[in-house]
Design a protein around this nucleic acid. Sequence first.
DNA 1: AGGCGCTTGTGAACTCGTGCACAAATCGCG
DNA 2: CGCGATTTGTGCACGAGTTCACAAGCGCCT
Lengths: 241, 241
Amino acid sequence: MSQHRPTGPNGRPGGVPALPDLPEATVARLPEYLRALHHIAETGNDTISSEGLAAAAGVNSAKLRKDLSHLGSYGTRGVGYDVALLIDQIEFTLGLDQRRAVALVGVGNLGHALAGYAGFASRGFRIAALFDADQARVGEPINGLDVRHISELAEVAAAESIAIGVIATPAAAAQDVADALVAAGVTSILNFAPCVLSVPEGVDVRKVDLAIELQILSFHEHRKSALTSLPGGLAEEAVGT
Amino acid sequence: MSQHRPTGPNGRPGGVPALPDLPEATVARLPEYLRALHHIAETGNDTISSEGLAAAAGVNSAKLRKDLSHLGSYGTRGVGYDVALLIDQIEFTLGLDQRRAVALVGVGNLGHALAGYAGFASRGFRIAALFDADQARVGEPINGLDVRHISELAEVAAAESIAIGVIATPAAAAQDVADALVAAGVTSILNFAPCVLSVPEGVDVRKVDLAIELQILSFHEHRKSALTSLPGGLAEEAVGT
DNA sequence: AGGCGCTTGTGAACTCGTGCACAAATCGCG
DNA sequence: CGCGATTTGTGCACGAGTTCACAAGCGCCT
Ligand SMILES: NC(=O)c1ccc[n+]([C@@H]2O[C@H](COP(=O)([O-])OP(=O)(O)OC[C@H]3O[C@@H](n4cnc5c(N)ncnc54)[C@H](O)[C@@H]3O)[C@@H](O)[C@H]2O)c1
Ligand SMILES: NC(=O)c1ccc[n+]([C@@H]2O[C@H](COP(=O)([O-])OP(=O)(O)OC[C@H]3O[C@@H](n4cnc5c(N)ncnc54)[C@H](O)[C@@H]3O)[C@@H](O)[C@H]2O)c1
C-alpha cells in the first residue's frame, strides 16, 4: 500500500517520496477523513463523493476537495473517490504505512486508561513500552506489557525504535520526562500534563488539555446565557477545534 | 477595540455583561494564559510583563498583548499586568466566575480516569453526576459520587443545572448519548469518542481524539525522516495545536 | 458517437489570524 | 518637574485558511 505510484499522470516520480508540504490545517483533518473512510469501507461502499465524505467527516465539501487535491488527484470526476485507494494515500501521507512504536510515561490514573486503549492499535500505533518513576508500579503488567522504570527509557527506546512519546505524569514532572524522552531519541511528544514544554528544535509537541477544552465550552456557555437576555437569539454550531 | 467600558478603571460596567465578541483563536488561548497566571501567582509575583507571561504560556508576546487587549485595557504601560486582576478578568470572560456543573457519561476505562481527575475541580468545574448504561456499574461509588443509570440523565441534569456534558462511551453509542444530553438541556459537549456528532444549532461540541493527535505527529515524523535523506536538514518546533 | 448529468479540481475573492514595529502611557529617579 | 527607561496597546502588512463558483473531465444512456 505504501508505494503505488508508477509515475502516472499525477503519481510522484521515481523514488522521490514527494513531500507536498501540506498546509497544517489539512494535516489535522486527514485523520478525520481517514476515520470516515474506514467507516464507509466497512459499510461496503467502494466509492464516495466529496459531498458524502465531507458529511461523514463533518466538514465542508469544498474544503475536503481542496485538502485531498494537495495529495494528488485521486478522484474521478463524475464518480467520486475510490475508498480503498484514498485510504492508502492518506495512510501513506500520514506515515502510517509503518506501525509506529509509542512510549507511554506515567502509568497513573490516566496512563492506565491509555495503556488499555484499543484505539491505539487500530489506528496505526503500537504501545511499545510503559514507564513510571514509582517503584511500586514497576513490574505491574498492563495489557500484556510490564511497567518499566523510567531509568530504562533510553535503552528501551533505542531497542524498540521509539520515536513518539506520550506524557501522562503530573505537570511537575513533565518537563523532566520530556527531556528524558528527547535524550532517548524521541522526536514527537504528546503531552497530557497541563504545562508548557520546552524542547529542542526538531522535536514536535502536541498537547491535550481537558480543562482547556472545558473552559472554551464554558466561554460559549457564558456567551449563550448572556445572549438569551437579549432579543436576537443567535447561536452557532460546533465550535472549531 | 470593540467596547471600552466607561465605568471604573477595571470594574465591569454596571449590569451589562459586555460581550466583546472575542476571536475564537483568542478564546482558545485564554485558558493557557490563565494557567500560566495561576502558576505565576503561586510564585509570589503580583505583576507580570507581557513578555514574561508570553514565555510562561508558550506564545509570542505580541499575540498575547493583542489577545488581552480584546478583554479591555488591564495592563499598565511601563509595568505590566496585575496578576490577580488579570486572573479575575480572564475567569470572568471564560464564565468561570460560576463553578459549572458537568455530567460525565460512560464510566469505563477512560471515564474512570476522568471521574477521578482533580484538575476538573481546580480549574472551575464540578463533576455533578456520572452516568452509564451498564447496570453492573450503576451504584458504583467513584470519588464520592455514585454512578447513575443513563435513564436518569434528564432528571439529574435539571436538578443540578448541568449545561456541559462529557461523552466517554464507545463511538457507537456517542450519537445516542449526545441526543440524550441535548434532550436533557445540555448545550455544550466534550466528546472523547472518535466520531462526528450531529447536534442542533446552539449546541457546541468539542472533541478530543488521541489517535488524531498521534497521527498528526506521525505525519511530522514521516516528514522528518524523509528530510534526513536530503541535504538541508530543516526542522520546526512545536506543531500548532 | 454524441450529448447530458454529475463530480472533481482549482482560480480567485474573502475572512481570519499573526507578528512587526512604533506611538502612547506610565514609573522612577535625579 | 522633566527625562529616560520600560512596557503596553494597536495600526498595518502579510500569510494562512476558507468558501464560492465554475470549467474540465468522466461515465452512462440513447
Ligand atoms: N486523569 C485524567 O483524567 C486526566 C485528564 C486530563 C489530564 N490529566 C493529566 O494527566 C497527568 C496524569 O494524570 P493522572 O490522573 O494519571 O495522575 P496520577 O498521579 O494518577 O499518575 C501520574 C503517574 O506518573 C508517575 N510519575 C510521576 N513522576 C514521574 C516521572 N518523573 N517519571 C515517570 N513517571 C512519573 C507517577 O508515579 C504516577 O503513576 C496529569 O498531568 C494530569 O493533569 C489527567
Ligand atoms: N481509554 C482511552 O484511553 C481512550 C482514549 C481516547 C479515546 N477513548 C475513547 O473514549 C471512549 C471510551 O473509552 P473507554 O476505553 O473508556 O471504553 P470502555 O468500553 O471502557 O467504556 C465505555 C463505557 O461506556 C458505557 N456505555 C456504553 N454505551 C453507553 C450508553 N449508551 N450510555 C451510557 N454509557 C454507555 C459502557 O457501559 C462503558 O462503561 C471510546 O469512544 C474510546 O474510543 C478512550
